[in-house]
Design a protein around this nucleic acid. Structure first.
Lengths: 209, 209
DNA sequence: CTTGAATTTGACTAACTAGTCAACTATATT
DNA sequence: AATATAGTTGACTAGTTAGTCAAATTCAAG
């Protein structure tokens, strides 16, 4: 019973866009409401607080955007190293598109928020960290499988995985800082050195044997 | 003539500490004044605005803290690869100490600020970016020298340097996010794989020949 | 068509925000 | 000791902030 509305979804979307661009503390509830075309009274009908909205917006963003992209790159049938390559490629293209559409390259929304540290409600930070940790698991699994399949020769797999993930997130963050996709170029080549990819497994997209 | 005061220095110091921990927008002028033991009227005697203070605080921090540390690691007499090793080591120890002293691991103050993007005055962001770019130059030079000295075998030096720097900043940022120095462990080993360090030049600190 | 729950609205508060200012105080220099 | 100058103070403004609320509106379901 009662009327129906997509105001909640519009608020989640607006919150994400603004927070991704400007940061948690720079974004006001009023600005989110205006961007969503929703009055403040309605805002508090749907969400308890700004922190509550942001937390839910992050989770919704993960489910609706990040997860589909990452899962299509890290699909089960794809060979482990090619998963990484696909993902780096997808992220490069995505960031270029974000910049083309919105004028600014934004990097990773979760990393952006998680790094804010104190000065952001713990519940929000935790939501961002949760998403990052889910993302990292895809890296860990792919690299583990690559090791088991003998595609990489690295000894300390855990340390190498840490490095691969740091390199990727670092490049994404630097791309944002420089407002340019440049740091994201050719990541897979660098990663293949970190993992000591066996020569016969190099450049999996082009391999024939 | 007139009286003397260290209020300006106290303000710079307080601004840096608070902004590093909480971020630019989460920190208020009132909070900075209170931490510095300075009344608001005095604040505006020394600085035009919050952005002005932050900008100057970043520059002062670079000159008084970051630069000395980086220059002692990247000293001219030190072999290029050992410079990197020294720097990673110094940063690891420093972050551990910051966490011990302040309860939270803070990572890189400039990276933290530069990543905020819109929602921070351009002058402030530019000051942070300037510091990051100065830092990066030490990496570039060391790696160039290593290449010229035949210590590394990597072909695309520029791409490798980008990766080394992304890996380092990514690890620092992740250390902050996780509030743990874990991602900073053993970075040099990973870097030496990125650079394809010649076996005879590995682990420069321990080399005898 | 009635009902009643879901949704919308705009005016409201109380706290906080950056920044201003004129009067006041201390002191280095002469 | 005089005095100009640098530094200090606290009360002030005007705008913004997150969050509240009671009344009005809409519409799905009976």
């Amino acid at each position: 019973m009662g009327r129906v509305s997509d105001a909640r979804e519009r608020l989640l979307k607006a919150a994400n866009e603004l927070t991704w661009k400007q940061g948690y503390n720079a974004v006001t509830v009023d600005a989110i409401c205006e961007a969503a075309g929703v009055k403040k009274g309605s805002f508090y009908h749907y969400f308890e607080s700004k922190a509550d909205l942001t937390k839910e917006a992050l989770e919704a963003w993960w489910q609706a955007n990040s997860r589909p992209i990452i899962e299509s790159s890290f699909a089960a049938g794809v060979p482990p190293l090619e998963r990484l390559q696909r993902y780096f490629d997808a992220m490069y293209r995505r960031q270029v598109e974000i910049k083309r559409e919105g004028g600014t390259l934004l990097g990773c929304a979760f990393f952006r928020l998680a790094i804010e540290g104190e000065g952001v409600e713990p519940e929000v930070r935790e939501a961002a960290q949760r998403a990052l940790s889910r993302k990292r698991k895809y890296f860990v699994q792919a690299i583990d499988e690559a090791k088991q399949a003998g595609l990489i020769r690295v000894d300390d797999v855990e340390a190498a995985t840490q490095a691969v993930y740091s390199l990727f997130e670092g490049a994404m963050a630097r791309a944002r800082i420089q407002d340019s996709p440049e740091p994201l170029k050719g990541i897979y080549e660098q990663v293949s050195r970190l993992l000591d990819v066996a020569p016969e497994a190099r450049d999996p997209a082009r391999r024939t044997a």
